[in-house]
């Protein structure tokens, strides 16, 4: 892939995105997790690409307010890539919103696993090992070395990866666009995205049914029976019920408070 020289505007957008991408856990919640950080990080890109086009801007902001969760460093890479995709969407129309969603969804799960083991389980242990040795003798340098090795290094990686994500994202899309295979790429991206969303749903969505039916002498754990039919069936049913409610135009507020009410009522009558 050819090396791309970034314009001044692109550079300043990327720099601003890099700084904003540090807010990974800002107002983290159990519905959309790191979505707020992603919106904040994408804001300079969206403003620079869509300018005065308020409708497209709204659409883009909504797109990047979707559920998002990965490791702090990986977030920068995906944001860089998303910048490249948004730019292609506006300039050439080669990429559509669904593809951007799919690629984000496809990348967040595996990058979370990779970067967690790299940074949290490896680099952190090394940095703490060095730091502990110095701090045990009352040397504050130990803390500073820990911050440099574990904290500052992550920031450096964030800076490198946000640029890499943008540069390689752009040249990759250009390459595919020239071969005229963009629809194939869109389809492949949706396939991978859906596989990963399915996997993440299976891992994270949990309907903790704790209901034992007692008929005479025998008691039956309802959840076991359901899971024998299909493991986690209730989670799938819940998800697709919500999908169909969203398609019918129900607001997320209604869904969230509905779930809260059902959970508390369920707990009251003893099925959770």
């Amino acid at each position: 892939m050819a090396k791309k020289i970034l314009s001044q505007e692109e550079n300043s957008v990327l720099k601003s995105m890099f700084l904003r991408s540090h807010t990974v856990f800002i107002n983290f919640n159990m519905v959309k997790m790191e979505a707020n950080c992603f919106t904040i990080t994408m804001a300079p890109a969206i403003e620079s690409i869509y300018g005065d086009d308020i409708e497209e801007k709204k659409e883009a902001y909504l797109r990047h307010q979707n559920f998002f969760n990965t490791h702090a460093v990986a977030l920068s890479f995906i944001a860089g890539l998303a910048y490249a995709m948004e730019k292609e969407k506006k300039e050439t129309g080669a990429v559509d919103g669904q593809t951007i969603e799919s690629i984000k969804a496809a990348l967040m799960g595996p990058t979370a696993g990779m970067f967690d083991s790299l940074f949290f389980n490896c680099l952190r242990v090394i940095a703490a090992g060095i730091g502990i040795g110095l701090c045990a003798d009352g040397n504050f340098l130990g803390t500073i070395i820990f911050i440099l090795l574990y904290g500052v290094s992550q920031s450096v990686f964030k800076y490198i990866l946000i640029n890499l994500g943008y540069v390689y994202g752009t040249s990759f899309i250009d390459m595919v666009f020239e071969t005229g295979l963009m629809t194939s790429l869109t389809k492949s991206a949706s396939v991978l995205g859906l596989i990963m969303v399915g996997a993440m749903t299976a891992q994270m969505v949990n309907v903790p049914l704790n209901w034992t039916l007692t008929v005479g002498q025998t008691s039956v754990v309802v959840n076991d029976i359901i899971n024998q039919i299909f493991p986690g069936l209730l989670g799938v049913v819940l998800l697709f019920t919500l999908v169909s409610l969203i398609k019918k135009g129900k607001r997320p507020t209604q869904l969230i408070f509905g779930i809260l009410a059902i959970a508390i009522l369920g707990a009251l009558i003893g099925i959770f």
């Binding site: 979505a35 669904q98 994270m204 969505v205 989670g235 919500l242 969203i246 997320p252 009251l268 959770f272």
Partner: peptide
């Protein structure tokens, strides 16, 4: 039941986030 209910709700609320995401990339 308040504690268990709230605990159960947290596990299920994620489904809302995933449902929005799924409905966007579903084809």
């Amino acid at each position: 039941w308040v504690m268990t209910g709230l605990g159960a709700a947290s596990g299920m609320m994620l489904a809302v986030g995933f449902a929005i995401l799924t409905s966007m990339i579903w084809s």
